[in-house]
Structures are given as C-alpha cells and as structure tokens.
Design a protein around this nucleic acid. Structure first.
Length: 270
DNA sequence: AAAACTACCTGAGTGC
DNA sequence: TGCACTCAGGTAGTTT
C-alpha cells in the first residue's frame, strides 16, 4: 500500500491527535508482523508521545526513553479513532491515549513492523543505510548521475532502490517516469544528466501533489480518520493497461520489471 | 558489488 | 458456490 505520500499523510494526520498525549494502555492483539512486535511496547504505559516524524516509509514516534519505529508494509494503516468503534479484523495493535482517543494499527498482510529502540532511530540498522529523502536538496540529478555510473539495472528499479533514494514505490516510479518521458527499462547509467534533472523534478512534483491530495487509495489505504486519499484520480499511467495515453493516445502497456507491474506509454517514453 | 530471485501474508478478482 | 489461480502501495535475505 503506502508509499511516501501515504506515510506522510498518516504522520500529518495522527500528529495533532497524539503529540503530547500519554499512553493509557497498549494492547497487542497480534504480534506476528514482519518481525515480532517489540515486547517493550507493553511497557510504554504512562509515557508521553513527544514527536511523530517520518524517515523514508518509517513512522517514528518518539518518547523520553526511546522511539517506536513503525512501518505500514503493503497493506497497513494507522487510525485515530473513538475507542468505542468496533474492532475490525486485522486491527493488531491498539494504543489508548490520555485524550480518550485510540491509535489503531491495522495490517491485513502483516508485512509491516512495530519496533522499539532506545538508541538514535537514524542509526537503526533498518534506517542507517537509506538514501536521501526525495523532497530534500540532497536528492538531485547530480547525485543520481554519480550513483548510476556503471549500474546495469533499469532506471525504474534504480529509483525504487532505497539506497539511492527513499520513498519512491511502484506507483510513483511509474508516474514520474511517464511524466519525464523516460522508458522504465532504460539502463540507469544511460540516462543523461539533463533527463535526470527532469526525472528528479517529476519525482518531487508527483510526491508533493499526492501529499496534497492525501495520498493514493487503490484498495485498502486509509488516512488517519478512515477516509481514502484522492490522488488515484490523478494517476496517469499506473494501473491503466490498455487505456489511452493522455498525451498521444497510444495504448498504455504493462510489463514486469523486478517482479513488479510497470505501466508506460511506448510512444512518449524512450 | 550488484543483479536476480525468494519469502513473508491475506484478500480481491477471474475463470472454470 | 467452490476451487484454483493471479495479483496487490514493500523490502530483507539469499543466491547467482
């Protein structure tokens, strides 16, 4: 499910409801996630949430004594909800707050995680070696060009590699390449600096526009208030196999790259 | 070092 | 209805 805009939407959505609240109770209904839910979570009772931030697709919830590192995987969502609302299947972790609201972690496929660290979360092994944030200055055509030297992989798999740049998942990789007019299969090392300039700008632009729309809901992504994100309506190629290119009216094609469905316009993208 | 592939898991959709 | 099959916003870990 969630790529960077969906995670950012979640962070922005929950932050005002949870920041400064203390934890009344945590119920772990299902600990079998990608890795077992850290048992330390049960000892957070009474602690106050200081900040909610994001690094890559990880949500970082900080306390005096450490940080909860949370990932939504493919199908996860976090909601702030009235605790009286009936539980759904796959509501795995319930965090009740001092303001009488409840933070609920829901994840049917259980590819997500909730891990506790007492150290600097940026030094955590899941986070330490990640590439730059796409919306930061550190992500530029020049840095991409340098990283692409000698790389035989496709440009699409390259921009989806978290060591190169974080947060660009399957939807936004397809969208940005389409807007930049670059064929997803083109070798990363064979994209000129000028075209990488266009690509980095399109990546930043598509992510920002999606954040403004509250992210993309394809199937199960929900915002913190349970509503869907609206960006799906603005997707130009993703999940549109056979439909006509909005620019040249060629049928959109679907191929598989790195086991992921890849949508592109065979005329506009070279 | 980097590319290719596997695995984790549930649910929705399709075709017979 | 039911069964078998494919596919899905991610990414660590293993093999080539």
């Amino acid at each position: 499910m969630p790529e960077l805009p969906e995670v950012e939407t979640t962070c922005r959505g929950i932050a005002p409801h949870v920041t400064g609240q203390s934890i009344r109770r945590i119920i772990i209904r299902e600990a079998r996630m990608r890795w077992p839910v850290s048992p330390e979570l049960k000892e957070l009772t009474g602690l106050t949430i200081l900040t909610v931030t994001r690094r890559a697709k990880y949500i970082l919830i900080t306390f005096d004594t450490g940080t909860l590192i949370l990932h939504l995987g493919m199908s996860g969502s976090l909601r702030v909800i009235d605790p009286a609302v009936e539980l759904r299947k796959h509501d795995h972790v319930l965090i009740s707050l001092s303001n009488d609201l409840e933070l609920r972690y829901h994840d049917p496929r259980r590819f997500g995680c909730l891990l506790w660290t007492e150290d600097d979360p940026n030094q955590h092994e899941l986070i330490r070696n990640l590439g730059p944030e796409p919306l930061s200055e550190a992500f530029s055509a020049e840095s991409l060009k340098t990283a692409a030297v000698g790389r035989k992989t496709s440009i699409k798999q390259f921009i989806m590699d978290g060591k190169i740049v974080v947060g660009v998942g399957n939807i936004y990789a397809c969208e940005a390449l389409y807007r930049a007019g670059i064929h997803p299969k083109r070798k990363a090392s064979a994209v000129s600096l000028a075209r990488l300039r266009v690509l980095t700008e399109e990546i930043k632009a598509v992510l920002k526009r999606s954040i403004k729309q509250g992210g993309t809901t394809l199937r199960d992504f929900l915002r913190e208030d349970g509503t869907a994100g609206y960006f799906k309506q603005q997707l130009t190629v993703y999940d549109r196999e056979g439909e006509l290119c909005l620019s040249c009216e060629s049928p959109i094609k679907r191929i598989v790259l790195g086991q992921r469905s890849t949508y592109f316009c065979p005329t506009c993208q070279k």
